[in-house]
Design a protein around this nucleic acid. Sequence first.
DNA 1: ATTTATACTGTATATTTTTACAGTATATAA
DNA 2: TTATATACTGTAAAAATATACAGTATAAAT
Lengths: 205, 205
Amino acid sequence: MKELTKQQSKVLACVEVYLNKTGFPPTRAEICKELGFKSPNAAEMHLRALEKKGYISIQSGSSRGISIVKSQQSFEQIGEQMPVIGLVAAGSPTLAEENIEKRISCDPNMFSDSFDYFLKVKGLSMIEAGIHEDDLVAIKKTTDVKNGDLVVVRLEDEVTLKYFKKTNHSLELIPANKDFSTIEVDLREQEAFVEGKSVGLIRTH
Amino acid sequence: MKELTKQQSKVLACVEVYLNKTGFPPTRAEICKELGFKSPNAAEMHLRALEKKGYISIQSGSSRGISIVKSQQSFEQIGEQMPVIGLVAAGSPTLAEENIEKRISCDPNMFSDSFDYFLKVKGLSMIEAGIHEDDLVAIKKTTDVKNGDLVVVRLEDEVTLKYFKKTNHSLELIPANKDFSTIEVDLREQEAFVEGKSVGLIRTH
DNA sequence: ATTTATACTGTATATTTTTACAGTATATAA
DNA sequence: TTATATACTGTAAAAATATACAGTATAAAT
């Protein structure tokens, strides 16, 4: 999570205090009044920055549509807002705000292992493992993976979700669909980046 | 504290659910949409009644200026401990303590629809729907199911998870595995109890 | 038979609120 | 020296929202 500037921190605190006091979030104008700004745009800009850094989410077009994603206050946050990231064809699955499709309120420890984000599955390459298109796979960011693990690997600019098998200099990324073929990587010729591994899955019916 | 009418109770619940889901209170129009009212004044009147009876307070002149004074719900909505029930061969999947295998901390609204418990899947009859043994299927207790829904149905003492298809006097419970056959029930001869329907699924890898 | 409470529809308007755009100022980095 | 990021002011328009008013319908109470 990115660092906040002094003013952004003040604005976040202001929103949290207002929320605790009234039960609903403040308007831009109310934030200005509280912090002494003279233009609603001052508040707007700080809120946008806070959203980009993942501390709040803003429901666009709604009045008072601010919700706290990550509290500045240190008290326990049960039911954190876990980000959902689309499995994009190119580039790493980063947690930058523009990649976050939505957030789901749940416990980061609901599976056997903790996880960092959900990856939204594209395509049918893992269908025989019971992993469908649009399923959300819970990914733990780690490079510590074993053969047989379901992993997120980046090759060049392509990111895939496959079973992991490493043998000497070669890496096999094995699909679970007879219509797809195993991706074989000679690690002396090409780099492969393990982004993380799956610890669970959720699906909405 | 005064008693609430049925509709007032619905409106209060609606506000509480919205608040838990979004982090801010609903507008009059949003309450109407949720509960099927066609005039914003319907919501307005109920809110006024709820304020008069001391369940909420309304900040006049503010958008979404509703705060809960006395919650209707006896339990916390976020980070609830949702029970996991084994799909036992005999008897209804009841929420009696002896049937609860464990509890998982998660948000009852993490799927598109709310749910009441997780059912632990036994057997392979739904494998082609990507539902494996030991997957946890989120079940919403309801009898309001449509053809094609994934439902929990009890026949005599046997409980199954299957696709639902009703035609006149006959009920078909369709598996997703070519090695299993559809269960056909003539409703004039045998009773079938719909216990609920699936709204989602989670799996631990 | 008439009132009273509940439960709405439908419309209209004033007010609140978001949000875009055009600027200003300052410090820091390239 | 020229960007670039932070941190605002000031204005204005469009959209969202609260809320008043005038009705309709129904069941229960008086």
